[in-house]
Design a protein around this nucleic acid. Structure first.
Lengths: 195, 195
DNA sequence: ACCCATATATTCGGTGCCGAGTATTTGGGA
DNA sequence: TCCCAAATACTCGGCACCGAATATATGGGT
């Protein structure tokens, strides 16, 4: 069986090992330090599963060592040539080809008609506020990163997220207004359903 | 153990049963007809798992029947009061509280610096085109739905998706230009890395 | 009257993921 | 120097999810 590009955590592992050999726990630490866990879900159990899977496909190799005092034996991994190729191919695919994502909000909003209009308005406004707060927090973070002299390329994904959050907030603002004003198509029927 | 709001397919099941009792296969069919599977991932195996889970938590009840010719015995399910409450609560939560989603593209773009700039440009342009095509297809679909006289509330999630796709395309256009012009922060270093 | 493609309806084994649990080491305070 | 909280490093059982396989029924064509 060839390697399956399911868990993006495997991508993170390949990316880290493309810098230098590491043992799993060190990968986790590094991901934390760089705030990568914001973008790629990190879970200890999954980390070791994923590392073992990469190893079994020979995309990385183990070079066991037992150094630095007498800590429990740590296994250090290094990326292989095939691993480097996989990293680049996977990366290109991830960027070039939009994946079906099934965002949870789409599922929720598609059924919003099941809630009475005033309940719907309340929750939409709540989300609008929450998204606004996320935007504010992100703006502060970007300010700090730019201030630290980090190049934009190092936090390009936050730039992207910012753009998406802005668009979501704008849509929520529109939808909230449309509910309030009763201008959303099908509003009479919606009201009629709930009383 | 109380019911866990993991698989949105369970939400779809509750929503369908809030209309009328059904057996699992009928739920799947109905989801197909209404293009709900575009928004909520449908998988037969998961469907039966999810139905059984809902039943075990008494959010739905089974009323076995063997009618309509001698088709294999079908189990018809109906929503309970607790199920209706769960449906509304879950729905409110899904809309009000933004969930951490880990979109695959964010993972990819966060590591774009690992690709040489010209490769990066190529894949970003590819995605830009792909998103453009999705947008066009969606516009046609919306036209058709509006033409059929369906109220906007019935396809509100497509409206939302449209807004998000527009924002993504705009961002991709900007980023592609920034790579081409070398105006993305850290461009010199990026170029230097790859030769 | 017969055939078989399609529709109907569900089962089941495999797998990847999760997160709580375990065991050891370090370092700082009393 | 002793203690213990925090850090280090990994393990493991359970479970949700997947999708391929199974089994029967229907209906249209010849």
């Amino acid at each position: 069986m060839s390697f399956k590009r399911t868990n993006p955590l495997a991508l993170a592992v390949l990316a880290l090992l493309s810098e230098r050999p590491m043992h799993p726990y060190e990968m986790a630490q590094t991901m934390r330090e760089r705030h990568q866990e914001e973008v790629i879900k990190l879970n200890y159990g999954s980390l070791y599963t994923v590392v073992e899977s990469l190893r079994s496909h020979e995309l990385i190799t183990a070079s066991a060592t037992r150094k630095a005092g007498n800590r429990p034996e740590r296994t250090v991994y290094a990326i292989t040539e095939a691993g480097t190729r996989e990293l680049h191919d996977w990366l290109r695919e991830l960027i070039a080809v939009p994946a079906k994502e099934y965002p949870r909000f789409e599922a929720g909003i598609s059924l919003v008609g099941l809630l009475p209009p005033d309940d719907a308005l309340t929750v939409v406004e709540q989300r609008e506020r929450a998204v606004g707060e996320q935007l504010a927090a992100l703006a502060v973070l970007l300010e700090r990163l730019a201030g630290m002299g980090l190049p934009q390329l190092a936090w390009i994904e936050l730039d992207y997220r910012m753009a998406m959050l802005r668009a979501e907030r704008a849509w929520l603002t529109w939808f909230a207004t449309a509910i309030r004003d009763g201008t959303v198509g099908g509003h009479e029927h919606w009201e009629g359903q709930h009383r």
